[in-house]
Design a binder for these strands. Structure first.
Lengths: 340, 340
DNA sequence: TCGCAAATTGACAGCGCTGTCAATCCTGTC
DNA sequence: GACAGGATTGACAGCGCTGTCAATTTGCGA
């Protein structure tokens, strides 16, 4: 059998409680005692039993990641960041896909949270902005951190995110700066607040440059490759097409590339394409995508840290809410060959 | 506070133990009693406490997914399958990335497993074949299911996988059938047993067709996009290049596409490219990739079910070990224009 | 109707750990 | 050297649940 606290206590010649104190880094233990206990624990290769801890205290050493995101890459990056942060602090990450279109999501979530013994929950878009969820979390008293929430949500609960408006502005300014005047824009899923913000940034940059954006240059997608394809087909249908297309994420930008490929429209010579997110996909397709590097990995790790610190009461600095982004210029964008 | 078993017992007018029996679907409870207890549980919105269960019994309702795989898509698919299977049965999935190059992986894993209260572990390649791990699992008495292990591992423990050799043979036969005679092959990471099997399948099909495979047509990759790029560069360097390239996974095939794009080699006119896995990427790039659909999602769900059934002793049928695959022909392959 | 085995139910301990609070051990002070 | 007051340590209960085993009820044949 695995060693228990009692074994360690016996070997170290102290009480169980003292062992517990040492293992949890509580104060009021002499250096000498602490050492003795640690030695005993090491000798017995003692590992705390998380179930027992969870039962006796309120700390479960478990975080949950809830998602319903079409982009596997996005979730993978968040997950990687979160697991990394967890690992360093003795926590573990439980992943739970949640289907949003489900009408009973509130009930579903409540059942889940009441069963699953976790110290906190990370929410990814579009879950981040579902206000109905807030009540559920408050009800079961489980803290949560939404990733990339709307301004409205942001005001209510701690969160991590980035400045989508500015990022979209910068990308648009870049396209304008290399000579594009007629730029198509593919909007993301309406239930993701980032979609709206990115569109706002695009429009504001166009306006600032004195460029007109006709209605038919803005198309509604939903972040999926398929939706990007449909939009690209419309955008690239006739001879009157934009010289550049800015898609709200990389998957949709990849779809534009794909449609252009089929139509023998050369990228970037005849058409520039820009994405958003800098997922692994962006560097893997041809031509590689000019896009915006989102600190997705960091968002995951920051969110996990916020939750863990809330639990362990460590005084580790609470990181800033808004993380940095960068424009990554690759081969999918170039000055327009043809003037519109 | 949340209701406990005691509350339910009181309301139903029975003992805690009887409630426990009902909740766990144990036999020897009258239909009447069972109903009464269920009604009481529903009324109180009772949810079992997993920590308490884990402490009192040996069932933790938690499975772990261990991975160290360069392909996010692959893991995402396994994970999706596993979480789905877990959800249906009241289980949850903990994800744990493990860095294989770490010399002390055995110790690391042992610490992890002794801490983490799970009922079973799903292992993905290349972890599937690390024989050193077997001892650790046996030591801590945690069952595990490797996904896509080698023949050798397969003989030792229950596992789920597919027939890599036949699949690679079929793809090769397909390429030959449309007229290719000079086919380049990019091998996967040497520590993945699938790499070896796929290469074997390729060679056997070529041999069966009476086609010669010169040394310089076989290049060693490691499943990463970067390695695929390096191999493609060599394969496509001079005028003497193959008319088709069969890469051992989609990421490397995407890299071939990317190199061909840069060199203005038109796919599929001047070069056919085939991949393996049918990850989301395959349908998203241009041209979409001819590839082999691996039942990755199913593998995840089958593995989870095997583990769960082992625990719950349900008599649900243990699924067959080898799952079906299909060739998916898309636009990246076509008969060769030029004869070699 | 009675007796017995099988089916059903319940009492109770204890899983491994932590919170509470009381006991003990130190300091430094006069 | 005795004592107050704080630092350190320990005894013990109990978190919510299940396993064991004993108590009780039920069904059935004679």
């Amino acid at each position: 059998m695995t060693a228990t606290i009692t074994d360690v206590a016996r070997l170290a010649g102290v009480s169980m409680k003292t062992v517990s104190r040492v293992l949890n880094n509580e104060p009021n233990v002499t250096a000498k005692t602490r050492e003795r206990v640690q030695a005993a624990a090491a000798e017995l290769r003692y590992r705390p039993n998380l179930s027992a801890r969870g039962l006796a205290s309120s700390r479960k050493f478990l975080l949950a990641l809830l998602y319903d995101n079409p982009s596997a890459e996005y979730i993978a990056a968040i997950q990687a960041g979160a697991t990394e942060a967890c690992r360093k602090r003795g926590f573990h990450l439980v992943v739970e896909p949640i289907r949003v279109p489900n009408g009973e999501i509130t009930t579903e979530l409540e059942v889940l949270l009441q069963r699953l013994p976790v110290d906190g929950v990370i929410l990814t878009p579009p879950l981040s902005d579902m206000n109905a969820l807030k009540d559920v979390f408050d009800d079961v008293k489980i803290p949560y951190v939404p990733i990339a929430p709307s301004e409205e949500t942001k005001a209510k609960v701690p969160s991590v995110g980035m400045d989508d408006i500015t990022a979209a502005e910068e990308m648009t300014q870049y396209l304008i700066s290399i000579g594009h005047k007629d730029i198509g824009f593919i909007v993301g899923a309406p239930d993701h607040s980032a979609s709206h913000l990115r569109k706002t940034g695009f429009l504001s940059a166009m306006k600032a440059a004195g460029l007109d954006v006709p209605q038919n240059r803005i198309l509604q997608g939903d972040f999926s490759f398929e939706s990007g394809k449909a939009c690209a087909q419309k955008l690239l249908a006739g001879a009157d097409r934009p010289t550049a297309i800015f898609a709200s994420n990389d998957d949709m930008a990849a779809a534009v590339l794909s449609v252009a490929g089929k139509k023998n429209i050369s990228v970037p010579n005849d058409l520039s394409v820009a994405g958003f997110d800098d997922t692994a996909l962006a560097g893997v397709i041809w031509p590689p995508l000019t896009t915006i590097r989102q600190p997705i990995h960091d968002m995951g790790s920051r969110a996990a840290r916020m939750l863990i610190n809330g639990v362990t009461k460590t005084t580790e600095d609470i990181p800033p809410l808004m993380l940095e982004h960068n424009i990554i210029v690759r081969a999918s964008t170039a000055p327009p060959a043809r003037q519109s």
